[in-house]
């Protein structure tokens, strides 16, 4: 469990990072928190010839909250955001998701952007970003582009980034008035990746109905999975007990989840509906809090 030989680069400027990526492309990997990359190097599942350590790039080590939303740069750690009371207030679901990631030691090092770039389909953040309609600010030496979270995750451990691109930051638009969210998951151990997880977001209308509902699941498919039919079923309702039972039933009947060493497809089929229902039930509970 020793990595193969690589050349180590420790740039301090974003431009340097982009130059290195431009020069080495396929041969290079970015090292952020290292919490996913180091194990892969040690198992020799990856053997990049060049490692570009971005930990000294000060400009990437920040996040900022404004009226329009939250921008999280490449080096902001899970723990930075988790411990921010402003972030917790503005995006309770993000805070909740973060506390479900691994353990404190890992959250101290691991980065939000690293987790998104890593694109593990059982991770919490990709689903939450999709539920919150996050946007990836992707940059290379030659171009900049914005990729909506919904188009960013291509396959298990594969994102839309090409080998010359850096995920410079992610932007999460501010949540609308009366918007609520919840994250629910089942894991084997505390801090594990999700066997099944669901990020649900919606907005309570004046009429007392939930609108613009988003339901995105972790751990059930090669990418975070948005459940459009279920969203349609619940949007415009009051999330009554009957609606919750119906959506659970729908998810259970329609989902064709993946099977892996962690659990069976049967299990995921059964329990995804449960976590979706539990997430939605928490939106229902929050209805009184948002005064509608």
């Amino acid at each position: 469990m020793k990595p193969s030989r690589f050349i180590y680069h420790a740039p301090t400027q974003i431009e340097e990072v982009l130059d290195l990526l431009w020069e080495y492309g396929d041969e290079a990997k970015i090292l952020a928190g290292g919490q996913s990359l180091m194990p892969m190097l040690n198992f020799r599942l990856l053997a990049p010839a060049h490692l570009i350590d971005i930990n000294r790039v000060k400009a990437l080590n920040q996040y900022s909250l404004s009226d329009s939303g939250l921008t999280i740069s490449a080096l902001a750690r899970h723990r930075d955001l988790e411990l921010s009371p402003e972030v917790e207030l503005a995006y309770p679901i993000l805070h909740e998701g973060l506390t479900n990631i691994a353990h404190v030691q890992i959250r101290n090092r691991g980065t939000i952007c690293g987790s998104l770039a890593h694109a593990d389909s059982a991770a919490e953040l990709p689903s939450i970003m999709m539920a919150l309609d996050g946007q990836m600010n992707v940059r290379s030496k030659s171009s900049r582009r914005i990729v909506p979270a919904g188009e960013f995750f291509r396959f298990h451990l594969t994102s839309d980034l090409d080998s010359t691109e850096l995920l410079e930051s992610v932007f999460i638009p501010s949540m609308k008035r009366n918007s609520v969210g919840a994250f629910d998951e089942v894991t084997r151990r505390k801090g594990d990746f999700a066997l099944v997880g669901a990020a649900v977001v919606g907005t309570w209308s004046e009429r007392g109905t939930i609108e613009d509902c988003r339901i995105v699941c972790s751990g059930v498919a090669p990418t975070p999975l948005r459940l459009l039919e279920a969203e349609e079923l619940v949007s415009g309702t009051d999330l009554s007990e009957e609606v919750l039972v119906a959506v659970q039933q729908l998810v259970m009947e329609s989902l064709e989840p993946t099977e892996d060493v962690h659990t069976s497809a049967q299990y995921r089929k059964k329990v995804t509906g449960v976590v979706v229902r539990r997430g939605l039930a928490r939106l229902a509970e929050q209805r009184s809090v948002v005064n509608v």
Partner: peptide, 16 residues
């Protein structure tokens, strides 16, 4: 007693 086995025991679904 993984979650999978517990549910299989309750609902009788087959595991491989």
């Amino acid at each position: 007693l993984t979650p999978d086995r517990v549910l299989a025991a309750i609902y009788g679904f087959q595991r491989d």
